[in-house]
């Protein structure tokens, strides 16, 4: 089946997201080694986004076979009516998903340890969410090595810690 038709017939599930996150991260490492920094950071942002969405949806009761689009709509409904509500900039708003994770854990009576919550905010809300934007695909950003290494550090943190968000 041609790719476009396959994608349409098989909307992404959480399982797809985890496999894709690992793939994008690995590809970003290759781009870093090749000194292709714009592409590297671009992919790292998506990888982190997928691990974050996976965490939030899982905390919201989503199983590995959950269709991401449907699960995100359900999550958005819940967060928009929460008190106080949590609003998103767009569907790539990493800080929004950080807040979703924190709220869902609080609601479940399992708040993250404070030092871990602080790390999460530093690495993602104050880190990758500041230094990455989907719109970078349409422009040359001329990022430098240190930019890419910083983003790699943020994304690596997410890669190695996302399971702690859902346990």
């Amino acid at each position: 089946m041609p790719l476009r038709a396959f994608v349409k017939a098989n909307p992404e599930t959480l399982s797809d997201f985890l496999l894709a996150a690992d793939d994008r991260y690995r590809e970003a490492e290759e781009l870093l080694l090749a000194e292709e920094y714009d592409g590297c950071v671009y992919l790292l942002g998506y990888a982190a986004e997928m691990w974050l969405k996976k965490s939030a949806i899982t905390l919201d009761g989503g199983r590995p076979n959950a269709v991401v689009k449907d699960a995100l709509a359900k999550l958005q409904d819940k967060m928009s009516t929460a008190v106080p509500p949590i609003a998103k900039r767009d569907w790539h708003d990493l800080s929004y998903f950080v807040e979703c994770v924190l709220r869902l854990r609080d609601d479940a009576g399992k708040p993250l340890p404070l030092d871990f919550e602080r790390e999460l905010r530093q690495q993602i809300s104050d880190g990758l969410d500041v230094d990455w934007a989907v719109a970078m695909r349409y422009r040359r950003c001329a990022l430098k090595g240190p930019d890419a290494w910083k983003a790699l550090g943020n994304a690596w943190w997410m890669k190695t810690n996302w399971t702690r968000l859902i346990i």
Binding site: T13, R63, P64, N65
Partner: peptide, 22 residues
């Protein structure tokens, strides 16, 4: 991570297969 390889579900979507596994 659970991967199940099976010819019998070729006509099903990824979502349906994942649901069967879970």
């Amino acid at each position: 991570h659970v991967f199940v390889v099976w010819s019998d579900w070729a006509s099903l979507t990824r979502e349906q297969r994942g649901e069967i596994i879970m």
